[in-house]
Design a protein around this nucleic acid. Structure first.
Length: 492
RNA sequence: GGCGCGGUACCCAAGUGGUAAGGGAGAGGUCUGCAAAACCUUUAUGCGCCGGUUCGAUCCCGGCCCGCGCCUCCA
């Protein structure tokens, strides 16, 4: 099955396959590690994860590179304010970022290169551009890319810049550029700033240059896919194309994927709007990492997502339904054999699911057949029309579902515990939802003991005691379910 | 101003030129010691508004209204 993905460059949905017949070579713009990641960042990373997971599910090996931008103006500024080296400053946020990615079940890219470790490659690229007369050095020691050297500029974002008058928007700092639209590939060091001593002068790389240099280093001068948030399309990706294609004379990435922004409660997320949330903020409020992941991915990547707390609750409940069903499959007893109707439903659900994802990663559409299957299977089980063979088939469908969605397997406790530990150390305990603390204070062993005691009480028909225990557990977020196959419990 | 996206039931949301997936919430019922879980039933003659094309439009075309994004650092 071949993925058909929208390509920003051509404006069309096109098949995406490895051009070398081996692995799909893809690059996605990673974080600038100057602060904790917010949910907007993670919406993009989650959808890139959906892409790579689906490719792998369809048997396409992936060679995925994601950069870490560990030097830029904000980093230099913040590190100086904190009285830290930029290395020490960025290390803490990079660590937090990788932890957050893991919490959201986002797979690690094959390569995660750091900008500061590839300065030499970037300098080479500037030199290459200089030789092609496409980059020039200013009096102040910065290097700029000459837009006039790349007539195709604007082909990704569909911008026609020919009408922009040179000099119209030149600001004071950039007075020595040849044209207002020329962008920096190398920034001269200001006194006291972190800088590298190189053949092209003392300074640091421009942001756009980093991605060009690192993507080509790991993936070659031409590769299959480049992804990022919609805001990066212009100017960041446009500049990458200009630099890279001018330097190599070859097409850079042939397929471009852009994930749309999310809104929070109907407005663009911004600190000034008071609707700005990091992943950690949400975990401390008691939302599960899996619910956050599902909420972020439930609306297809090409549509704006309105992120709301109602949506988070809804995602929590939807996941509960899936997990309850999964538990019913794995813990229930089923007679040997299978129900031909069930087999057909499972097969159909699987193919509808795969087809929806293959169709430009339509995650919303892909969910539907899975939930259909859950209902049909529950009904068949209730009616005793369900065999061990059906269980096995459906477990395989769910495994493929979770290979991309990654929400059924319950790994939620760990991220929450880590967020709590972090809050303690960061002095954020006031932001921890009180119920959350109580919940985590109760160990699995303690729950098991109480559940056991309740079962005994029930057998003795001491329902008062049994209900008392049930209420006590419920208050701490533990739900008990009595079924024919015994007692199950779960954390809310 | 330029480029682009969206307006589908109480909420989120998919979708197709031939008559509206799925999830969540609500209501009623079955089951249960009571619950929970699960299942059943139930909620859009209708898909922003007005025209047009068509045998037929939510889906195509035109206009209008509303919301949003990018165009500057930004996922």
């Amino acid at each position: 099955m071949t993925l058909r993905l929208f390509n920003t460059l051509t404006g069309q949905v096109e098949p995406l396959t490895p051009s070398d017949g081996q692995a799909l070579r893809m690059y996605s713009c990673g974080p600038t590690v100057y602060d904790y990641g917010h949910i907007g960042n993670f919406r993009t990373f989650v959808h890139v994860d959906v892409l790579r997971r689906f490719l792998r599910l369809t048997g396409t090996p992936v060679r995925h590179v994601m950069n870490i931008t560990d030097v830029d103006d904000r980093i230099i500024r913040n590190a100086a304010q904190a009285g830290m080296s930029i290395g020490a400053y960025t290390a803490q946020y990079e660590h937090a970022f990788l932890e957050d990615m893991a919490a959201l079940q986002i797979e690690r890219p094959e390569e995660i290169p750091h900008a500061t470790e590839h300065i030499a490659r970037m300098v080479e690229l500037v030199e290459r551009l200089a030789r092609a007369k496409a980059a020039y050095k200013t009096e102040a020691g910065s290097w700029y890319f000459r837009l006039a050297a790349f007539p195709e500029y604007g082909k990704l974002s569909k911008k026609d810049l020919s009408g922009i008058e040179d000099g119209a928007r030149v600001d004071v700092d950039e007075y020595d550029k040849d044209s207002a639209r020329d962008f920096a590939v190398w920034k001269a060091a200001k006194p006291g700033e972190t800088a590298w001593e190189t053949a092209i002068g003392r300074g640091r790389p421009g942001w756009h240059l980093e991605c060009s240099a690192m993507s080509m280093e790991y993936l070659g001068e031409s590769f299959d896919l480049h992804a990022g948030g919609e805001d990066l399309m212009f100017p960041h990706h446009e500049n990458e194309i200009a630099q890279s294609e001018t330097a190599t004379g070859k097409p850079f990435a042939r397929h471009w994927m852009h994930v749309r922004f999310l809104l929070v409660e109907g407005r663009k997320m911004a600190k000034s709007e008071g609707n700005f949330f990091t992943l950690r903020d949400l975990l401390l409020k008691g939302y599960k990492a899996s619910a956050i992941r599902l909420a972020l991915m439930s609306v297809p990547y090409r549509h704006q997502l309105n992120f709301t707390f109602d949506g988070l609750t809804e995602a929590t409940n939807a996941i509960d339904r899936l997990r309850t069903f999964h538990r019913r499959l794995t813990t229930g007893g089923y007679a040997p054999g299978e129900n031909p109707e069930m087999q057909e439903l499972a097969r159909k659900a699987h193919s509808d699911y795969m087809e929806a994802l293959a169709s430009d990663l339509n995650t919303a559409e892909a969910r539907a057949p899975i939930f259909d299957l859950v209902r049909a299977a529950n009904t068949a089980m209730d009616q005793g029309q369900f065999g061990a063979g059906d269980r096995d088939s459906i477990l395989r469908v769910l495994a493929d579902f979770d290979a991309v969605f990654a929400v059924i397997r319950d790994d939620d406790a760990e991220p929450t515990r880590r967020a709590l530990a972090w809050a303690e150390q960061a002095g954020r305990m006031d932001d921890v939802a009180p119920e959350l603390r109580e919940r985590l204070a109760l160990s699995d062993e303690a729950i098991e003991a109480l559940v056991g005691e309740r079962t005994s009480a029930k057998q003795e028909r001491n329902f008062a005691r049994a209900d008392q225990i049930r209420n006590e557990l419920a208050a701490k977020g533990v739900v008990i379910e009595d079924s024919k196959d015994g007692v199950r419990w779960k954390r809310k």
